[in-house]
Amino acid sequence: MFERLKKAFSAAPSPRELDDGLAQWAISHMLSHHRLPNGATAAEGLLHDKAFKAGCAPSTRPYIVGVELLAKAELDLREDVNIIVMHRTLKRALDKAAVNLFAEVTDTLRTTDRPLPEELAWLSMYRDAGWPGPSTDFWSRYCVLTDAPEAAREWLDEESIELLMDMPVELRPVTPFLIAFTRGKLYLHLQMEHADDGVISHPVLDAVEALSARALRLFGR
Rank of each mutant, 00 (worst) to 15 (best):
E170H: 05
E74P: 06
A71W: 06
T146I: 08
R172M: 12
K6T: 10
D80N: 13
N100D: 14
F177T: 14
P203Q: 13
D137R: 13
E170V: 03
A51L: 12
A11G: 08
L22I: 04
M30D: 14
R127K: 12
A54G: 01
S135C: 04
I179E: 04
R61W: 10
A129H: 00
R92H: 05
V204G: 11
T111M: 08
S14G: 07
P149N: 07
E17F: 05
R110F: 05
R141W: 05
G133E: 06
L120Y: 11
V67M: 13
C56H: 01
Y126A: 01
L31F: 07
P173F: 15
N82H: 08
S201K: 14
Y142P: 03
R88Q: 07
D80Y: 04
A8F: 03
S32H: 05
A129M: 00
R221K: 15
L31P: 07
G130A: 06
Y142S: 02
L190A: 11
G39E: 02
L211I: 11
E162C: 14
R88P: 00
A148S: 15
I83F: 01
L31H: 03
T41E: 09
T136R: 06
R88Y: 01
P115R: 15
T41H: 07
L101S: 13
A26Q: 01
A213Y: 09
A148N: 10
F181L: 03
L75F: 13
T182P: 00
D107C: 05
D128Q: 01
W139T: 05
A98Q: 12
V105Q: 13
I83P: 02
K96S: 02
M86R: 12
Y187K: 04
T89N: 03
V85G: 06
D76R: 13
A215H: 10
L116P: 10
L171W: 04
L218P: 07
E119L: 03
T106V: 10
R16H: 14
L77V: 12
H34S: 08
A180G: 07
A207W: 12
A213P: 03
A11C: 02
A73C: 13
A213W: 08
V85R: 06
A12F: 07
H189V: 01
V81H: 00
L18G: 01
G220R: 15
L163R: 14
V204E: 14
L218C: 09
D166H: 06
K96T: 01
L171Q: 08
